[in-house]
């Protein structure tokens, strides 16, 4: 099973990279960019077919390692 975990900064946490990207997009003249927040994407292959177990394993992975709960949120997506 293919899965994707997306990790993003919690709102309110300063995101200097996002700000820099936002500035770059604006200077490239890309219209309508109001703001940018950047994050990370993890594409993970899960063995087996048990979606429930997979969801649990991925949440555990995100909680324990992939995201730092002090500053980051995550979202698990099973395909």
């Amino acid at each position: 099973m293919k899965a994707r975990v997306t990790v993003t900064l919690k709102s309110g946490i300063l995101d200097p990279q996002g700000k820099a990207i936002e500035g770059a997009l604006k200077s490239l003249g890309i219209a309508g960019v109001a703001s940018v927040r950047q994050g990370k994407v993890f594409d993970i292959e899960i063995e087996g077919r048990d979606r429930k177990a997979a969801q649990a394993a991925l949440e555990q992975a995100a909680d324990k390692l992939l995201a730092n709960s002090l500053i980051e949120n995550y979202q698990v997506e099973l395909k």
Binding site: I13, L14, P16, Q17, A20, N68, L70, I71
Partner: peptide
């Protein structure tokens, strides 16, 4: 900090 032995997080320097 990541191990939970200290509070807080060390983020990117403001000068990037």
């Amino acid at each position: 900090c990541e191990a939970g032995l200290l509070p807080g997080v060390l983020m990117r320097n403001t000068a990037m």
